[in-house]
Design a protein around this nucleic acid. Sequence first.
RNA 1: CGGGGUAUAGCGCAGUUGGCUAGCGCGUCUGGUUUGGGACCAGAAGGUCGUCGGUUCGAAUCCGACUACCCCGACCA
Length: 412
Amino acid sequence: MLQSKLLSKTLRESPKDEVSQNAILLTRAGYVDKLMAGVYSYLPLGLRVLNKIKQIIRQEMNALGAQEILMPALTPKEIWVKSGNWSKIDVLFKLKGSGDKDYALGATHEEVVTPLVKKFAASYRDLPAAVYQIQDKFRDEPRAKSGLLRGREFSMKDLYSFHASETDLEEFYQKAMQAYFNVFTRCGLKARLVEASGGTFSKYSHEFQVLTESGEDNIVVCNQCDFAQNTEICSLKVGVPCPKCGQGVQLVKAIEVGNIFKLMTKFTKAFDYQYVDEGGKRQPVLMGCYGIGPSRIMGAVAEICQDAKGLIWPAALTPFHAHLLLLDASKKKQADQLYQDLIAAGYDLLYDDRLESAGFKLKDADLIGINIQLIVGEKAGDQVEYRFRNDSAKGKADFNQVVKLLEKEYVQ
RNA sequence: CGGGGUAUAGCGCAGUUGGCUAGCGCGUCUGGUUUGGGACCAGAAGGUCGUCGGUUCGAAUCCGACUACCCCGACCA
């Protein structure tokens, strides 16, 4: 991709109406554009990152044996009334269509998925069943804030599992938990499993929290063991002994990036979903649900992976494998050739071919934060200078060495 | 939904004891000189001053209402 053609423009100054770091940096670097409070457009750079996150999630969900589907975002009032959530979910976006018909925009999809799976998985032979989708969710938050972290429309991967027995649900729940850890690790985040309330769903749930000062959630954690609880259910005071290992607990801030629940029969009862067992008897179906917010992961990574110069994308999420910078116009042929050759070798490059000063391009590249910078200029002669944005390595290399470098970083 | 703040060109801002043609920086366009850490010179385009109403000879400026956005809180399937 030629940067001269890329639809985005970096901003020297922070947008006036953003305070959160993720919104400031993603806006300044040209990844997103705010349409209204809590609602963002993803520009080409931002969409690439978002898609990489979604792809990682897809791989982990597929490995779990879940099948990807896509449900509608526009839903009829009736299903929400049936579950009781028409009045219980206060952030539900409700709207009227012609003929005065009531609709809701999907804030979650139990109401759609439960009757859906019921149609196709009526026998014990069909269970367990697990389906997921990646779709935008709509929640009428009383106060959207913190950039991508709390929006009114945001990307969500929601997985639902259906089981014939509690042990089967438990087994899947554990596997899903591991898959979630895999997702966060691959996205460059250290997530912590935290016990939390289940909201209107179930008594307790597990959240995946990324510890950072810029988080919105308060959690009580033990540094010695894996004990962690959200303050919404935790009554422990700072410094008191950990109920699990006896060491002192502390209060920290965190960003919630995932949440899993055992719903048991809450929705299968509401939608009268039972399966037929080996003996021909009808039995209750047990259900679990598992959510991850790709856009929130993007916000969390932007919040954490940055320095004074700009963003620093982890290798797995970088919008392009490398950012090629032409700093000396007289070497355009060399840079063009490198660009063509690396594309031919299968890599995604952003090529800064603009007629801008060297300093301008270097500043821009640091702000955008692509994992590796490849610089063609006078310093490296016929070679190319490479630099990892996270400062882990830099040097000079010829074409073959650059290919090896990229291979090592991106091809496993 | 309570409290606080903001609203002037694409972005960031100045201008407000009411006054003539609403400015500055960045960005954009034209020409020229530049090119290793956001270059320089010359010229140009770009504005219903958030919206509606009021006061006035005259409103970006004063008054009222509304809207949007940000922050704190409440809320958070």
